[in-house]
Nucleic acid binder design. Structure first.
Lengths: 124, 124
DNA sequence: TTAACTGCAAACCCTTTGCACGGTG
DNA sequence: CACCGTGCAAAGGGTTTGCAGTTAA
């Protein structure tokens, strides 16, 4: 059956709010730490299970970046490209002027380098 | 002490040859499988240790890509950008005409999408 | 002969799963 | 009162480390 019923729990709400409050892609551990303020005994397994559920429902977007575990963000914040601060290890979505490679970074950050990653298929 | 002496072993040579023969970034498991032809009892731990050693020596370049474990390639093959075949899960380095976003892909592959990943620092 | 290297197995870390209990609808 | 969700702990998968024996130089 595809018609699974999703329930509202204080854990799920805390997780959702934590991600929205972050305003940038965050990982499971960070989500746990943030949400623990609301739900002290929150388990990491619950965070993982809710992440999976919310991604399936389309309430959460996975953000995968090179050499790192995936992070997650609220869909509304989604922009096509990413900016990674190598000093603070925070990730931001950005909406660059791709045509001339002058991406508009978050205030206060400076661009050091970028990487283009192309995806495709073997069509033979 | 920085002056560690590196020795030549049949395992290390087999690993090195396997990576060079692949001609594209390969992961630890794939390296193990390839090198096992030469050294049957080769252990995965030896592969990991040699990868680390060779990266430190500059004989091997790590290639990190979104949502995947790192792969490794011989430095000579290094090109600025990557192409990922989502059908065969192989990775190639490419030298695209970045200015107009017409990367020259490996023969037979078609581009589906690309992602720009910017790296930088917080300078405040 | 020395000390780097190897294979094996155990340890680790992060993520997933099994289970009994608790809470939503 | 069904049954989904939770916390805990155990299980997985991939990577690293400890150890005793092996081997390059």
């Amino acid at each position: 059956m595809n018609s699974k019923i999703f329930r509202e729990t204080k854990q799920r709400n805390a997780i959702k709010r934590a991600i929205e409050a972050a305003g940038r892609p965050v990982g499971p551990k960070e989500i746990l730490d943030l949400a623990c303020g609301e739900v002290p005994n929150l388990g990491i397994a619950t965070v993982y299970r809710n992440i999976k559920t919310m991604v399936e429902k389309g309430e959460l977007d996975p953000v995968e970046l090179p050499g790192q575990a995936p992070r997650y963000q609220a869909p509304a914040e989604k922009k096509p490209h990413l900016f990674i601060c190598e000093k603070t290890d925070r990730v931001f979505t950005i909406d660059p002027k791709a045509a001339d490679f002058k991406p508009s970074l978050p205030e206060g950050f400076v661009l050091e380098r970028f990487q283009i990653i192309c995806y495709g298929e073997y069509k033979k």
